[in-house]
Amino acid sequence: MKKQNKISENEDKAFVFRGKYLLLIVLIIYGLFFIGNSQVAQLALHKSGNILMKILPVLLVVVLLTALFNFLLPPKQVAMYLGRESGVKGWLWVLIAGVISHGPMYIWYPLLEDLRSQGMKDAFIVVFFASRTIKIPLLPLMIDYFGLTFTLVLSFYLLVGALIQGLIMEILQPEI
């Protein structure tokens, strides 16, 4: 019932900019740095610009993906695949999704928030974030730096650890 209310609340949400205060605080910090140490501020601005350029294509993919999810999967189905009734398959889905997801963690927040409002379990969000430590495109580099044994052992523990974290989250915050 609570979840249903949450869903309808989400659907009726008016357009409101979020994180205005965070952006304002960050702008003030930059302003202070420009006054106190403009070199650091310029470097930070340059680095931020680079990050933004790198994440924009990924962000675009995430927007399209989110729309595709919402188009193909009505809330009831999301709840079926990623909710309380999803079973073992749900755990495997989020584990795989976490491993193949690209880009920084924060660009996935809107998609996960959306899926959460449609019935995705909090435990699955934890699994998704935890399994993201395994980066498939970076595995050859990890093997080069730390060796094959290390990479395999770490990847195994990361996957098991992600599932255990999800299970603990389920105990800490049981779904109603």
Partner: peptide, 24 residues
Amino acid sequence: NGLSFLAISPLLLGVVGLVGLFQA
């Protein structure tokens, strides 16, 4: 969904700004 992402853009920009600052 585009509007949802637009709504969250100040939040993302804030985080990007913080990450840039940390890196610097």
